[in-house]
Design a binder for these strands. Structure first.
Lengths: 182, 182
DNA sequence: GGACTCATGTAAGCTGTTACATGATTTC
DNA sequence: GAAATCATGTAACAGCTTACATGAGTCC
């Protein structure tokens, strides 16, 4: 499942412009997938070339022109096929956990900062997820996805809160390293 | 934090061969980072060229020759700098959640399969994490990282178990799509 | 006047995956 | 005899990020 597939899937639900797809990605997928304009626009052009989507240009009054994309029947078939054939999997990339892994090499003060930042980040994410789960327009699958996200982040936050004191209290200041040559 | 940084960090802890680094990655980082030989070997060569690690070749008796890498003082300084400057962040890429998001477009039977696969995958991951947290060699930071992983996966699994019946019971078989032309 | 939103796109580059190539030894 | 483990590496490709380019309108 790459950006191209996600664009096709989004267009299955409703016609969109590239800009709207980006906004939708942020609102709907941001807790399990990300994508920038630099990958969305080329993906849409590629899909159009392959005949999986169709484009029509709308003249913007006072605003820039927009290209509105619709999925074709072939596009629908391709998306359904890749959806059913995709193996479910999850992969986390956590710089926070890397930092924890090597935390004994870090100054205590920086470690404290990092922990605090992460707590705040978790709280923000939770707030966001709780705000969207309350909306009543979700399908059962979407709702489950959000609930899994909430439970997961909530558990991470609680574990961090519970153990951070031990981490910081037992932390030994590492010997300073010579950075003058860099 | 890329593969190159992680190699450097691993070599900070002890001298290793590329092959050993891969094994260590699997054992220690696999729940928050992955890397294959195709990125580790080039990374080590790059680090050697930059003077951040040193190599010596060991003749293998009955086994292939090995290249053992050690970090240099400059390498240590570079790693400590990038460790303290890295902003803590986490990013999930979940094809499972994508499937859930579009689950109303999938055949019920496939959805049931996907949910079961994911349950098993979570259980395996939990088993693995619980087996390593019991070892007593971990630093406080490493232990916290593992505990966060356990809490997180555990929460995901429980949420899935709790809501999957509702998901499957309310699921409507979507109209079949014409796949003959593909 | 500056920042932000709307709107689309390109190009360079970084990073990583996958497949291939080699080859000996050990285990089933 | 087949498969797995040990051991290193390259080359092609896929995929995404970042920065740049353009330009009008709106809000403070």
């Amino acid at each position: 499942m790459n950006v191209s597939d996600l664009c096709l899937g989004t267009l299955y639900l409703s016609d969109c412009t590239g800009y709207e797809i980006k906004k939708l990605f942020e609102a709907a997928f941001s807790h399990f997938h990300t994508a920038g304009f630099g990958s969305i626009y080329p993906a849409l052009n590629k899909l159009a070339k392959a005949g999986l989507v169709e484009v029509r240009t709308e003249a913007g009054e006072g605003k820039p022109d927009r290209k509105r994309y619709s999925i074709t029947e072939e596009g629908k078939a391709v998306f359904l096929l890749s959806l059913t054939q995709t193996e479910p999997g999850e992969q986390l990339k956590s710089d926070f956990q890397v930092i924890l892994f090597f935390s004994h090499l870090m100054p205590t003060e920086r470690l404290r900062q990092v922990v605090e930042q992460m707590e705040t980040a978790y709280q923000h994410k939770l707030g966001y997820l709780r705000s969207i789960v309350e909306m009543e327009c979700h399908s059962e699958g979407v709702r489950l996805g959000i609930n899994i996200g909430i439970a997961s982040i909530s558990a991470r936050l609680e574990t961090l809160k519970k153990h951070k004191h031990k981490l910081l209290a037992n932390h030994k200041e590492p010997p300073q390293c010579d950075l003058s040559s860099l």
